[in-house]
Amino acid sequence: MSTTLRSVDQPERVAPSDASAEAHASTRVAQPYMDPYLAGIGLGLVLLAAFVIMGRGLGASGAFTAFIAWLAHLAAPAWAQQNEFLAGYLGDGSSHPLKAWLVFEVLGVAVGAFLSGMLAGRLRTTTERGPRASVRARLIAATLGGALMAWGAHLGRGCTSGQALTGGSLLNLGSWIFMMCVFGGAYAVARFLRWQWR
C-alpha cells in the first residue's frame, strides 16, 4: 500500500543505484543530509566535550572487545583471565565486563543515530548495495569486512573513532600513522570492490 501511494504521489527516482534503498521505502521522503562541515563541527564539539568532561575521547571497537570478554568469561573464565587481550577488559573481576564506558557510549551511538534517522525520515529496513551486487553477496562481504575491520582495529588499538578522530585531534603520532594507512588500504582495494558499490 505504501509503495503504491509513493509512486502516485512522488515521481520515481531514476538513479539505478537507489533501487535497493527504495524497496522498503516508506511514504515519507528522506531529508537531505546535513552539510558535511556543519556535521563535522558538531562531531568535533561532542569529542571536545568528551575530553573536557571525561578526559578521554570517543571509541567504538573497544565495546565489542568488552562484549567478547564477557562471553569468554562466561564460557571459560580461567582461559579469559589468562588471555592478555581480554584480561584488560575483565579487570579484577569486581565489576561486570559490560559495565564499561565504551559499552554505554556505543549504546548511546545507536540511540542518537536512531533519533536522527527518525527525525529525518531515514529509517529504512534495507540492504545497502550497488545495482550489480546481490543481497547475498553484499551480506557476505559485509560480514567479512566486519571481521577484517575487527582485526585491524584490535591490532591498531582503536578504530576510526578511537584512533583517527580522538587520537588525530590529540595529535597522537600512532593515530596519524594509523589514519594514513586506513586511507591507503581503502584506496588500494577500492577498484577490486567496485562491483559491490557502483
Binding site: A141, L148, M149, W151, G152, L155, G185
Partner: peptide, 16 residues
Amino acid sequence: GGLLLGIGFVVGGYCP
C-alpha cells in the same frame, strides 16, 4: 591494522 581496517572499510562498507 590501519591497512586492514581500510580494506575492511571498502569490503564491508562501514567502520565500527
